[in-house]
Computed example of a mutant assay.
Amino acid sequence: MVEQESDDLDLDAVFGALAHPTRRELIEQLAGGPKSVGDLAEPHDMSLAAVSKHLQVLEDAELIDVEKDGRVRRCHLDGAPLSNAFGWLTRYRVFWEDRFDALEDHLEGADQ
């Protein structure tokens, strides 16, 4: 059996968490600063329990930190996992840019 590196597993969790549009919206909300679970749930047409499940996925992927203050749970965005995902995507952006440049060169050569 092939073992995956820890970074690969982290990326799997991050991309899995970001795969759902509600979780992406929650990340966008938290980009503006920490918010309570109730504040995060307010604009969504779903129960508080459903939002909490989405937040748990984000927490498991280490995209957010949840701090309990009495009965209030406040969520904070952790940018490090997003930075790691961005770094991984950037490698492939360079790959595709090189491919598109080669295609452009080929097409320009075909016009002559």
Rank of each mutant, 00 (worst) to 15 (best):
V51S: 07
E42H: 05
E28L: 14
S52K: 14
Q29K: 12
M46C: 07
Q56D: 14
V37R: 10
L40K: 08
P34R: 06
V51K: 03
G38P: 03
V57C: 02
L58N: 02
L40Y: 09
G32N: 12
D45E: 10
P34G: 04
E25K: 13
L58K: 06
K35E: 11
R24V: 15
L26N: 03
V37K: 08
L55A: 09
K53F: 13
L30F: 02
A50M: 03
R24F: 07
E42W: 00
P43G: 01
L30M: 00
G32P: 05
E28M: 04
L40S: 08
R24W: 10
E28F: 12
G38T: 06
L55F: 02
E28S: 11
A41T: 08
K35P: 02
L30N: 03
I27C: 04
K53G: 06
E25V: 13
A41R: 12
L26W: 04
H44G: 07
R24K: 12
Q29M: 08
H44W: 05
I27M: 07
L58P: 04
S36E: 01
S36K: 03
E42Q: 12
E42K: 05
D45F: 03
D45H: 10
L40A: 06
K53D: 14
S36W: 00
A49C: 00
D45M: 01
K35H: 03
M46I: 10
S52R: 15
R24P: 05
Q56V: 11
I27T: 01
S52F: 07
I27H: 03
G38F: 03
G32M: 04
S36D: 05
S36T: 10
K35G: 03
E42C: 00
H44E: 10
D39R: 10
I27Y: 00
A49D: 14
L55E: 04
A41E: 11
A41N: 08
R24M: 14
G33R: 00
I27P: 02
L30P: 03
G38D: 13
P43Y: 02
L58D: 00
L48H: 13
A41L: 00
V57M: 08
L58E: 01
G33E: 04
D39W: 06
L26K: 01
A41W: 09
L58Y: 00
V37I: 15
P34Y: 00
H44A: 12
P43Q: 02
L26H: 00
M46Q: 15
E28I: 11
A50Y: 06
E28A: 12
L30D: 05
L58W: 06
M46K: 13
L30W: 07
M46W: 05
H54M: 04
H44T: 06
G32L: 07
D39F: 03
L48R: 15
G33D: 02
G32D: 09
V57S: 11
L58V: 00
G32Q: 11
G33I: 03
L55I: 01
H44S: 11
I27E: 01
A31T: 13
S52I: 08
M46A: 15
E42F: 06
M46E: 15
I27A: 05
S47W: 10
V57R: 12
Q56L: 11
L58I: 02
A49G: 07
M46H: 11
H54K: 04
